[in-house]
Write a protein that binds this DNA or RNA. Structure first.
Lengths: 150, 150
DNA sequence: TTGACATGGTTCCAAAATAGAACTTATAGT
DNA sequence: ACTATAAGTTCTATTTTGGAACCATGTCAA
């Protein structure tokens, strides 16, 4: 399997690997969610090389997670903002952050937290079934081949 | 930042990138969740080179997501199974799969689905706050620097 | 007892991705 | 004219991944 063909895989996990399965993309999205928009800010904040950053931003644009937009004329300068698809990635980030904090422990505390926008209280994420409200875990869910469903 | 130092980052997203931020690891986890355990099965199913597969399995073992276990003597042969930490990654996979299916569309249907183990009905995942039950979205959640929380 | 098969790896070389640093372009301000 | 800003691009060195062959340890059948 070739790396660039991942967009074309029928398995959504494979396509997801096409998004986050490289260095930096996940952290670029994290920074974007924290409000960062400009090339130089991403670069300085992450310590990524400008070369790779430019490539990743192009990729994220091509995949539809971010869009490049002029924020001034003369000289025209562009920044990068999350699209709807990019914003909808937020729950995945939340779930992943929660998992990492629990399962890849570290001496120092996390440099950020997630709080409810309205109440300001810290959040405790749980993945649930929208229909039944039940929590979704490894045990409560089965992965079945698509052709066996019906 | 060096790739191997990611385990040592205080940011959980950075540590998460140390897990899934490479080629193949995400798909190895997908296959493990679908029940695959043996080296050759992973290899054939994924089309990954044996070289890289061996490396990834070692990494997943070192990170505590999988463990290597003998399944027969004479000759002793080992397979790879998810640990508790590995199984707890399932909701992240679910959320990511759901996101990819919605936001990276594809002509063909996904090769698998997730169903509730008890009822057998298809699942519709939503990330919620365990305390309030409210759905967690980009808009309902804020990311705040840790030092500003209290 | 020898030769094919099974299965979890390792080794070696080529190709591709990433790191690191310098350079480019367009314009404003002094 | 000179300096600063900010989004990129270009070039070379290093690291990661791909591809194929090989190795280790045993079983089983002839």
């Amino acid at each position: 399997m070739k790396w660039n063909d991942l967009n074309d895989e029928s398995c959504p996990m494979a396509r997801a690997m096409g998004v986050v399965g490289d260095r930096w993309t996940l952290l670029i999205l994290r920074d974007a969610m924290s409000g960062i928009r400009r090339f130089d800010q991403f670069q300085e904040n992450l310590g990524i090389t400008r070369h790779v950053l430019a490539e990743r931003l192009k990729k994220l644009e091509a995949l539809g997670l971010m869009r490049r937009e002029p924020y001034q004329d003369r000289p025209v300068r562009y920044d990068y903002r999350l699209t709807r698809a990019g914003k909808e990635f937020a729950p995945v980030m939340l779930a992943m952050t929660d998992w990492a904090a629990r399962n890849l422990p570290h001496d120092d505390p996390a440099p950020f937290r997630f709080v409810a926008r309205d109440t300001g209280t810290e959040i405790e994420p749980a993945l649930t079934d929208r229909l039944t409200g039940q929590e979704l875990t490894y045990r409560s869910v089965r992965m079945v081949p698509a052709n066996k469903v019906r």
